[in-house]
Design a protein around this nucleic acid. Structure first.
Lengths: 235, 235
DNA sequence: TTTATAATTGTCATTTTAACACTTATCTTT
DNA sequence: AAAGATAAGTGTTAAAATGACAATTATAAA
């Protein structure tokens, strides 16, 4: 059979940057690397792409194996292909990122697996170019959040407006006016107010909302200008 | 030396979707494939990633070799990694896309190289999954154009407002009001009006403008809502 | 009953938007 | 030289969205 002669094959890996939100803070999920070299050091979740799978399938498989997480929203971030990024062998890595609701996974991940959540503002040194991957993922998260209601991917089934506002404030490191924030968010008409209240964080309690998935899908392209002056946005 | 045992290596390629604008229409640059199989059929520009280069460097090299184009804006589009996308051998491909001013390159490309411009609305069948790549690139172009003044990358040094408007209209397949369009574009304060006029397309002639690069860089993050109701935007 | 805490809600002045049509400059034709 | 054709350029107004701003409410704890 025909072959492409004289071309160099290389290893192809995937790495996953998993952001999580616990209702108040934005975190990132890391594991201790099992493989030599750098075994034991903190790292993003990753693995090699197998012969009969796409890179995205590889990312899903790796995530499932290392954290038990299934069925999450995964998005391609970028290719990292510096020839010397992995000192062992030439390996290009496709980075994926995702947004999950921490509370839905926290115990499972920490007990059954050796993964751990760290604040995005302070986490250990990572191997290889994983630091760059996280940096780029943060930029992309900001960028997406600025124009998309995509952040809903990151929230629990039910959430309160103050929680949602905290999320935006964490991502952009800004403070927002509650009145204007809720007006904008509610004007999208994507949210359904529930009768139940969240009462852990206040005496009065905050109403839960849930996403109106039909409307969300239908008007998903609605451009939200959530952040008054979007700055330092990833291109 | 340590090696990663039992992992499958694969070929890594790059493919480039080059959009061009000639002042009126949006086009795409294709070549006739030199390699077996499918030799002679139309294809995106592509090639294999070499041992000591990043994927982006590979894309730049390939473009230079196949079209003579240098120094252009290249952006990563997506990874295409279906295991059977190339019938010969497992090859994953990183797709890049770019936006160039056709007039700047037209003769050079058509004479010295075997590349050809086709209207984005009508071009030949392409090999492998290149059709999917083009589709995705078109979506991403729309998406970027909706929020970014990035389209300037696609324009000549000097351009007229009617040309710019045509570009947006082509990309989004919509009609726009000239008055509102020019007001919005000029309100960004990125453009410098020149004294010279373009007189090929009208008797009155249209003033040329050029980009104020300093202001562009400084306020580049300005969110333009150019398209009234952005629809079918790539996520 | 009081107090403390965080959630909820409304107004107004300013800016931005979308919808809309006539005038101008210049070349071509008669 | 005048008339006609073509595409460029420009302004107004009503409606909507934005940002700045502070008082009230529900509830648990003291």
């Amino acid at each position: 059979m025909t072959r492409y002669q004289h071309q160099t094959k290389m290893l192809v890996a995937v790495d996953c940057i998993i952001f999580g939100f616990d209702g108040k803070h934005l975190k990132i999920l890391l594991v201790q690397r099992a493989l030599h070299p750098e075994s034991g050091k903190w790292s993003l979740m990753g693995g090699f792409v197998q012969p009969a799978e796409t890179t995205k399938q590889a990312a899903i498989r790796v995530l499932q194996k290392l954290t038990g997480i299934t069925n999450i929203y995964l998005e391609e971030l970028a290719v990292f292909s510096n020839p010397y990024r992995d000192p062992v062998e030439r390996t290009i890595s496709i980075a994926y990122f995702s947004l999950v609701d921490i509370n839905q996974y926290e115990k499972q991940i920490t007990n059954e697996y050796h993964a751990e959540w760290f604040p995005v503002t302070k986490f250990p040194k990572l191997i290889f170019d994983h630091q760059d991957m996280v940096k780029k993922a943060k930029e992309k998260l900001r960028y997406k959040a600025a124009f998309h209601p995509l952040l809903f991917e990151l929230l629990p089934e039910k959430f309160t407006l103050p929680q949602l506002q905290s999320l935006y404030e964490e991502i952009f490191d800004v403070e927002m006016d509650k009145r204007n924030f809720s007006r904008k968010i509610l004007s999208m008409d994507f949210l359904i107010k529930l009768k139940e209240k969240e009462k852990e964080h206040s005496k009065k309690g905050a109403y839960y909302y849930k996403l109106d998935k039909k409307k969300y899908k239908a008007n998903f392209h609605t451009v939200l200008k959530i952040i008054p002056n979007p700055d330092t946005l990833y291109v």
